[in-house]
């Protein structure tokens, strides 16, 4: 029971309270770039959940069974993780194209985008090196905890992205002053949205 409650808190902490987009300001490029279209945002959210889970799994294994035993983790983890994530995404893309054209068509265009998405690297790093983001909850990611955390980050990413995409549909038709149209207005709105997330700070001591 205690573990389940802890996992729940870990998920909420990763998804909402420490939302990767609106309180950490990581992966803003995709947040601003993708959110101008609802369908694209839905596809991107699902793809990010899928890729993040795989990337964290792979980097967790590499970190615990390769980098740490060899004693090179502390200074090699960033290049190693970037390489793993990029290679993994490329392989998935090739695999999907050959074996599941339907899924490839739905997800394919987002996969190259995700390769360079810093949120994936951030989640993978946090799972490998707990404390990277200084969450106040006690944890020392086992494999399961790492997956729950990653799922939380990805779900929080998707939630914020969909929220923002729905808002931008309204912004698109608003008579915004000419000089603020487009990205400036997106940043102002994202700033106000992140103002609302301030109210979540410190919930459950997270």
């Amino acid at each position: 029971m205690h573990t389940i409650a802890n996992l729940g808190l870990l998920f909420i902490g990763a998804a909402l309270i420490n939302n990767i987009l609106l309180t950490r300001f990581i992966a803003l490029c995709s947040f601003i770039g993708i959110s101008n279209d609802w369908q694209t945002s839905v596809g991107m959210s699902l793809s990010v959940i899928f890729v993040m889970m795989m990337a964290s799994t792979a980097t967790w294994v590499v970190w615990n069974y390769l980098l740490l035993p060899l004693g090179v983790g502390e200074f090699l983890y960033i290049p190693a993780f970037i390489l793993i994530i990029a290679a993994l995404v490329q392989f998935v893309e090739m695999y999907l194209r050959k074996y599941s054209p339907m899924l490839y068509r739905a997800m394919g265009i987002y996969l190259p985008l995700i390769t360079t998405n810093c949120a994936v690297l951030a989640a993978a790093t946090e799972v490998a090196k707990p404390g990277f983001f200084k969450m106040a909850i006690e944890y020392n990611y086992t494999f399961g905890e790492g997956l729950v955390y990653t799922l939380g980050v990805a779900a929080g990413y998707g939630f914020a992205l969909l929220c923002f995409a729905a808002m931008r549909e309204r912004l698109d038709i608003a008579p915004v002053p000419e000089s603020l149209k487009g990205n400036p207005m997106s940043f102002i709105t994202a700033g106000l949205l992140s103002l609302a997330y301030v109210g979540l700070a410190g919930w459950f001591g997270l």
Partner: peptide, 18 residues
């Protein structure tokens, strides 16, 4: 469960965003 005694402002802003 939060760190502030009152969060009405943020509750409404959050739901405005939603």
């Amino acid at each position: 469960f939060g760190s502030m005694p009152e969060v009405t402002t943020y509750a409404i802003l959050f739901m405005n965003g939603l």
